[in-house]
Write a protein that binds this DNA or RNA. Sequence first.
DNA 1: TATTGACTTAGAGCTAACTCTAAGGTTTAT
DNA 2: ATAAACCTTAGAGTTAGCTCTAAGTCAATA
Lengths: 139, 139
Amino acid sequence: MKLTISETAEKMNLTAHTIRYYDKEGLLPFVERTESGIRYFTDNDLEGLEIIKCLKATGMPIKEIKTFMDWCVEGDTTLKERYRMFLERKTAVESQILELQQTLDRINYKCWYYKTALEAGTEKIHDNAPKYPQLENLD
Amino acid sequence: MKLTISETAEKMNLTAHTIRYYDKEGLLPFVERTESGIRYFTDNDLEGLEIIKCLKATGMPIKEIKTFMDWCVEGDTTLKERYRMFLERKTAVESQILELQQTLDRINYKCWYYKTALEAGTEKIHDNAPKYPQLENLD
DNA sequence: TATTGACTTAGAGCTAACTCTAAGGTTTAT
DNA sequence: ATAAACCTTAGAGTTAGCTCTAAGTCAATA
């Protein structure tokens, strides 16, 4: 099953422009062409794009994703590097989640702050030390 | 307790350049100056910078943070807008956490993939359908 | 008082990741 | 066979968020 670049773009929620950009940056070394030079995408290529999206979602820059793709092309001699890279991504994502949860705590406090201020009609009710219900029901 | 811009930068883990940039963009309408035009930062200003960092951590662009700061200056008439904004931030952060958790699942799969490939010395062991221990002990 | 170091501004420069344009080649549908 | 709708490339343009520079002012120390 072979797809054109725009069919692939649609399926992967990208644009054809973006896929060509990824290709130009060396992120798609596996994508093949017809005799006349037109790219076609196999299931394996879609899987490659999924990996790119996954690594991007971890905050990895394009250049480092290229390094990974180069390792993939190089073969079994780079298994250790690739393993180490994914372990690093794991801890990176875990700390991003932790940070977002701390951010969420602050945001929840602000939700409470503005909810109560709104009910009171003024922010002034928070002029003294705030009584934020840490352990109570927040509803 | 009044701090200079570089003391503030150090304390907040920012640069003086960045703080001036935020000020130029209208994110610090509360920061006052000496007669000769030099900024000084109070505890309240540090709190403001904390809010900016928090909103940035939710992925909010500078321009929208400015909108929020404008509302703060405007006073109690904008309490509803500010409340709604924080509710939106809350759902935004919650979905970012969910997405990161899905990303983490894929990364964990890849860690397993490369760990087992590394142990086998080759990626070929994954040529057939993968037997990823979904419900078993992973390490 | 003079020098050093921190402050000010306007504005230029940088980087990442697209995003788009122009000019041309290929494929498909009538 | 010819028009429409794709595909290709090189390279220019865009955006956000800094980051830095230059030229000058202000404050603290020897």
